[in-house]
Design a protein around this nucleic acid. Sequence first.
RNA 1: GCCCCUGUCGUCCAGCGGUUAGGACGUAAGAUUCUCAAUCUUAAAACCGGAGUUCGAUUCUCCGCAGGGGCGCCA
Length: 495
Amino acid sequence: MTDQTNQTDRTETGARPVRVRIAPSPTGDPHVGTAYIALFNYAFARHNGGKFLLRIEDTDRERSTKESERAIFEALRWVGLSWDEGPDIGGPFGPYRQSERSDIYRKHADELVAKKAAYHCFCTAQRLTELREKQKAAKSDFGYDGFCRHLPEAEVQAKLKAGAPNVIRLAVPEGETSFNDLVRGEVTFQNSTVDDQVLLKSDGFPTYHLANVVDDHLMQITHVIRAEEWISSTPKHVLLYRAFGWEAPQFVHMPLLRNQDRSKISKRKNPTSLLWYRDQGYLPEALLNFLALMGWSVQEGQDIFNLESMIRDFTLDRVTTSGPVFDLQKLEWLNGVYIRDMAAPELARRVRESALKDQPVDEAFLLRTLPLVRERMKKLTDYVPMTAYLYSETVNPSAQDLVPKKGTPQSASAALTAAADALQGLADWSSPAIEQCARQLAVTLGMKERDLFMSVRVAVTGGPVSPPLFESLELLGREKSVARIRAAIGKLAAG
RNA sequence: GCCCCUGUCGUCCAGCGGUUAGGACGUAAGAUUCUCAAUCUUAAAACCGGAGUUCGAUUCUCCGCAGGGGCGCCA
């Protein structure tokens, strides 16, 4: 068993120390997909005693923002996946922000041109747009038509000298390119279907393709674990590694998270912002557990496990390749499981920070309320509405709710009056004593317990659905409890 | 249009040539119960289709079909 594991590890990881990375681009809200991919990279790195790094791919000057970058850090920290090297903490292979590495890319792009593996292209954006439209109309293949690829050298030099705006494109050779995806097997592309991709934009910034290959090599990345959407650009990357004379890393393409309709997950059809999940009161450990479930499984089959055990058990051969539908209902269930299993003080802390937004709270009281609601909570934020009646001065039940199904306002009123009187005179204000008193009262009144209790419940909590009644009364205190019952009687009398 | 990936209950996973095709979420019914939850029990629910390989295919191969992704000076 151990031997087999070691063998698998050896073929999966090779000789070099494992180094993996996530490379989010700081545009918009931090995405669940980022956490999803981060999780698998993290688990793989930790399982193999390797490094997990964070690199910010901010080469799109139009869309990248510092704010978004900060949000990525914040979200990743919240979720609990810590990186060993990154823009905020540095590391031996920095800088880890691509906008700070421009000259590196420029140099490498020039090297490619010198090697004839890339070429300058002077086509205008307008010509390219027209080209695409033509191709679309003709239903022909898409992609750059190679117009500038065979410009005479003298002309290229003249244009460069004249300062003509240009980009550098990859000169895709003839033949075919394949790579071995560690979970999908060999994937092959005819080079004729691979575009002469732009590597260096006219603003001097690299595209993803160049930057990611150069950085992965320079940062000694051994395994590229990324989303499925990258499969079709992988041949470009392989071609780049080859052109540079570098060894390519191993590739693993994880499936894409899906909306209910199976399209790639999107914010129009599904919450995708990690901060949304945080603000809704999901626990990071539940989210991680849930994310792990869609793409990986434990040998023994259990579906509740923590990060630590995932790291221990994680191997690539149990990674799935089919696109999982993001099922919020299952996440909710899992979240509830974690809430129920959490130690009380810890849960109190989370509730305070999340649901209570760090408002000043009576810690002791919070701790006392938790047992009444924790097994009913699916999200941390559920705490607030579920316990509102315990914090408010009064409640506002409807007259209709106060009357049991087969009762009348008069009978309900009589029952509540008796209850108020009994509770008022109760010697011991504790939940067992209150319960005993209430049950006795039902007998005395000749009522069904559930009917009596329901009237009291509505009177005291404000509605027909609530945490356990007697514990609620105890927490609320005699004064408030009785006052609420009397107020309800008044309400019934009023009509 | 071209290329690539994927295809087991509604959903997420298990299965890795021979199984009564298993678990979880959800759903339904019941038990418990002061309501709602939680908990427990039970039930319904799936191998995309067709060829081939084989004594035997959910499992291997091929062809269809379906879903998804890609085809940007975005990542």
